[in-house]
């Protein structure tokens, strides 16, 4: 009897300690939660709420889904959605494949060389958008750019190309810059992830006569899948939210050929003060991103 009573006491005490620990955990989480609710959840709810209003610098009146109806009849918005999709669909696989390739190559290098290349590829990420775009603007400059100079010196072009001023080139220039600023983080993540691959399995597969490709596909790749999923989702979100690059490089031109949803949203809110309409765009963009992310989770999910 006394043992049962002792166990009950012990159990109750253990639960009390657990409750106490939970409380302490929540208290530790509280600052982050407050920040999250204040700066993420609340603005998100406000964004959805105001998207149903004719919200401008002067007015704030409920208009139901009229902003959304207008959006679906807005050709500039349509073009911006198309451009955004082109950027996302073109950049995500490219970034992932290139990052994976670079990571596998530099992973085999000595520590110093590996760190050096990680630093080189990560540099555009830490530099920030403005200096990166300024440098690329010089590269693509129509009259004095190094790209035109190189191509004409090699006899490839006879007259300068207006890289940022012609629709057929501008979007690819944007993609090229986005690519350089997007690969840094995936490379670092893949290099770290390759370090977690079970070497005994790699060696076993080699002993069993697997080719390098077979070893990669059947041994390394399954270990890299969680990282790949993370990289895919983050790169997709960054591509969909491509804004600073467009604003600094082309302002959405020429003739809307590089306008993205984020840029058009910014233009609508800050240049013509239609905040409600801009928020409706934000809601649509969030839905598209959520759909893409869900699709990626479904395709690349791992059981563990």
């Amino acid at each position: 009897m006394s043992t049962l009573a002792d166990n009950k006491k012990l159990f109750a005490r253990s639960r009390a300690i657990q409750r106490q620990q939970t409380k302490v955990s929540y208290l530790f989480l509280l600052p982050a939660l407050l920040f999250f609710f204040g700066f993420v959840v609340f603005p998100m709810i406000m964004g959805i709420y105001t998207s149903f209003f004719n919200y401008t610098m002067k007015e704030f009146s409920f208009i139901g889904i009229r902003n959304y109806i207008e959006l679906f009849n807005d050709s500039t918005f349509g073009q911006s959605v198309t451009n955004t999709l082109i950027i996302a669909v073109a950049s995500v696989p490219l970034v992932m494949l290139f990052s994976l390739w670079v990571a596998t190559v530099i992973y085999q290098m000595p520590v110093f060389s590996r760190s050096f290349f990680r630093g080189v590829f990560y540099l555009p990420v830490v530099m920030g958008s403005v200096p990166v775009v300024v440098v690329w603007k010089w590269v693509f400059h129509r009259y004095h750019g190094i790209l035109n100079w190189t191509l004409s010196s090699l006899g490839i072009i006879s007259e300068n190309i207006n890289w940022l001023g012609e629709a057929q080139y501008a979007i690819w220039c944007v993609l090229a810059i986005l690519f350089t600023t997007s690969i840094g983080q995936p490379i670092v993540l893949y290099v770290a992830s390759l370090g977690n691959v079970d070497q005994s399995q790699v060696e076993a597969s080699e002993v069993d006569g697997c080719s390098k490709w077979q070893t990669f596909l059947h041994v390394k790749w399954p270990s890299l899948l969680p990282t790949t999923l993370y990289v895919a989702v983050i790169t997709t979100i960054n591509s969909f939210q491509c804004f600073a690059l467009i604003q600094l490089l082309t302002s959405g031109g020429p003739d809307g050929s590089t306008s993205t949803v984020m840029y058009y949203l910014y233009d609508t809110a800050f240049r013509i003060y239609r905040y409600g309409y801009a928020n409706a765009m934000g809601v649509i963009l969030a839905i598209i991103i959520a759909a893409f992310s869900a699709f990626q989770f479904r395709v690349m999910r791992t059981d563990d």
């Binding site: 890289w163 082309t250 031109g253 020429p254």
Partner: peptide, 8 residues
């Protein structure tokens, strides 16, 4: 005349 959609 130059057309400059890439400059302001």
């Amino acid at each position: 005349l130059e057309f400059g959609p890439e400059i302001n």
